[in-house]
């Protein structure tokens, strides 16, 4: 005798908040699922008035944007939540940051005032530290790669091995010098399947035999709208902040 899901008084979502968070230090080894569990617990600890879905097992209303791979640090990951009471974004940022373990840090919270947020995440800036490699050799490899029209790489995805172009989405690839390493800065357009930093490194190995002697340290520095002229990435929160700024003046 199956029971019906109880009819609950589901409080409506009155406000949506967009969160930018960072994944730092040793917590770069957390996976996307690890972060999801940590965030949902932090929302409870911080007593954020979350909106829930209906049904037998209600879930808090949280949407996740494209997350950085396990092992990659990030300064710019994005999440959107729905709440049942209006909240001060700054208070939510502080409470949630306090409730998360150090290393998973809430950088900024804004009220969602605009649609199509995910579409605004057009590209990422990746900082790829290559310990044990010199600037000159990486520079040559980067130029070789950028000189190609298309470089097909293979990666094992959950749908099996896929082959795709890892060159096309790379908008900019510059080399800087770091402490005992060369640093690749890559601006990469989001595509399907997405070209990740390890795909760029695979492409560099294929075209220029560039093989890092030690595992690279990768950080996503930004995600947002791609400025095709300056080949840089903007702040995706800007349109959300705009009405607020307009109201204040």
């Amino acid at each position: 005798m199956a029971r019906q899901a109880p009819v609950r008084d589901v409080a409506p979502t009155v406000q949506r908040l967009r969160l930018r968070y960072a994944k730092r230090g040793r917590l770069r080894f957390s996976s996307h699922r690890d972060f999801q569990r940590a965030l949902e617990r932090a929302l409870r600890r911080a007593e954020i008035p979350m909106a829930f879905s209906a049904g037998f097992s209600p879930h808090p209303k949280v949407s996740y944007a494209n997350s950085a791979p396990t092992g990659v640090a990030s300064e710019a990951e994005y999440v959107e939540i729905g709440v049942t009471e209006r909240c001060d974004p700054a208070a939510v940022r502080a409470a949630l940051d306090e409730a998360l373990p150090p290393g998973l840090d809430i950088v900024e919270v804004v009220e969602a005032n605009t649609p199509d947020f995910v579409q605004r995440l057009e590209a990422s800036i990746w900082q790829i530290e290559l310990p044990g490699l010199g600037v000159a050799e990486v520079e040559i490899a980067a130029q070789k790669l950028m000189g190609q029209g298309e470089v097909t790489v293979e990666r094992l995805t959950k749908n099996g091995v896929r082959a795709f172009d890892a060159r096309g989405p790379v908008v900019l690839l510059v080399v800087e010098s770091g402490p005992e390493c060369a640093i690749l800065m890559a601006v990469v357009r989001h595509a399907t399947p997405s070209v990740r930093p390890d795909d760029v490194l695979t492409a560099l190995r294929q075209v220029a035999d560039l093989v890092p002697p030690a595992p690279p340290r990768v950080t996503r520095l930004a995600q947002g709208p791609l400025d095709p002229v300056g080949a840089t990435v903007g702040d995706p929160f800007t349109p959300d902040r705009a009405p607020l700024a307009a109201a204040k003046t």
Binding site: R26, L27, S31, G71, P101, P102, G103, P215
Partner: peptide
């Protein structure tokens, strides 16, 4: 010894289990 361990973690399954950082 985290500096030494960090070099190995990208090469193993579920590295999060070795880094601690529990609440």
């Amino acid at each position: 010894i985290f500096d030494q361990l960090e070099l190995l973690l990208p090469l193993v399954n579920k590295p999060i289990q070795y880094v601690g950082g529990e609440l």
